[in-house]
Design a protein around this nucleic acid. Structure first.
Lengths: 232, 232
DNA sequence: CGCCAGTTTGACCAAGATCAACGCAAGTGG
DNA sequence: CCACTTGCGTTGATCTTGGTCAAACTGGCG
């Protein structure tokens, strides 16, 4: 099931989203080099704000290293995390003039920051760049749709199982996973409470589906079982 | 609060999403005329499938009239509705080669269907069209993010209140709202059960916030109260 | 008129939230 | 170096929201 959530990964996709080559073509490489030139490298320590709700949305970012959370705090204290961004991910590409969410460093983060104006000029000259950004937005849209399914119709067990598989997929791809974010971050990402996240992880551990050597390290013991937990 | 959910409405937005003119420029009109020429007009009766999960995603659509639901059925019968599309909305712009969701007519629907290939050719010649589609996708992304917040952190009461305000906004903009979709559709859109949707609507009716002359007609009696219900 | 699908309402139930206590490891300062 | 603090994480007891099950209602329509 988690496959169907629309986690489109990082494959190249075409103008309106058809499948493209898995490896960046030379045109795409040119585009990325050109992009690099107009970007600014920035460092943030853990929990530092990268931008705030209400800021002018006149730039966007690419994660070089570390983890970013894009989130929103409601008046009564409820918090929602829209997405986690890891090395290579884009964030802050918004449709409005103002930020609706804030972005914060989870751990030590290095990002590249791009001005909208400069990017637009560059896109006019470089069709490859326009395509890369279009694809990125389209992938993000697919991911967002997958998350509405998860939040709308999945149980706590399924949410946590899908989260773990997503993290194994996007991060380590080995049997050992290091989670940079806190239990609270995970809860706010999955629409659960911290207690439910803990209990569900403990349940998976008790069932020998995962190991939890330290709080932020997950060992994958039984992938089949985890995938089965996403099915029904 | 429902304002902040990112329902970006139908304002024009720029290349990377900056605010643009509210009225289509002449370039945009040209683009839409050119687009019209490569589209095919199609009619569907209520509950007819427009495309199915797993179909090749080689085209996309624009709603001319009626209401479309984009949805997904899970193996165990749970259903999730990703979005409702009304006159003027686009749907079926996907990032993958295959449909992850199906699209169905809610009532009598007329759509315009566009082939991906033809659209790509047209976009190469017509920068205005490329911009229109980019903006549409960016707006959809903002909406999807708003829906993850709704599904992840809002109570049943808040979800229904936000839904009603969204519908008043997107559809009638008067005091009377005709809902084309069933209670079941609403439930699957809001991540609730049909009973909870009914009960919540009844509660709003009892509190004289809305009137329900017939099951599919909602009368807005106290907008303030409905907006207040979204806040906390 | 009676059937049928969709809607509404009520009684009861359970998944997950809340409240509370405790564990544990990393600082910190005496 | 070791008490003390502090911030997470884990676990347990209890409560609440919304789900489930069931029955009654309503408006079309043959």
């Amino acid at each position: 099931m988690y496959r169907q959530l629309g986690n489109a990964g990082h494959r190249g996709v075409g103008v309106l989203g058809h499948d493209g080559p898995a490896i960046a073509s030379s045109g795409q490489l040119d585009a990325l080099v050109a992009l690099e030139r107009i970007g600014t490298r920035l460092k943030f320590p853990p929990n530092h704000e990268i931008y705030a709700e209400g800021d002018r949305a006149d730039c966007w970012y690419k994660v070089i290293s570390g983890t970013v959370r894009v989130c929103k705090l409601l008046a009564d204290g409820r918090r929602h995390i829209g997405e986690f961004c890891f090395s290579g991910d884009y964030f802050g590409i918004d449709s409005g003039a103002e930020r609706l969410y804030s972005a914060e460093a989870v751990d030590d983060v290095i990002v590249m920051r791009f001005e909208r104006k400069a990017t637009e000029r560059l896109m006019d000259q470089n069709a490859g760049l326009a395509r890369i950004l279009r694809d990125a937005v389209l992938r993000e849209l697919t991911n967002a749709h997958g998350r509405t399914l998860l939040l709308g119709r999945m149980t706590a067990l399924e949410r946590v199982a899908i989260f773990l598989l997503e993290m194994f997929e996007r991060r380590d791809r080995t049997k050992i996973l290091d989670l940079p974010m806190s239990r609270n971050d995970i809860a706010d990402y999955l629409g659960l409470t911290i207690e439910t996240v803990c209990r569900t992880l403990s349940a998976f551990k008790r069932a020998a589906v995962i190991g939890i050597p330290t709080a932020h390290r997950i060992e994958l013991l039984d992938r089949e079982a985890l995938e089965a937990a996403c099915e029904a």
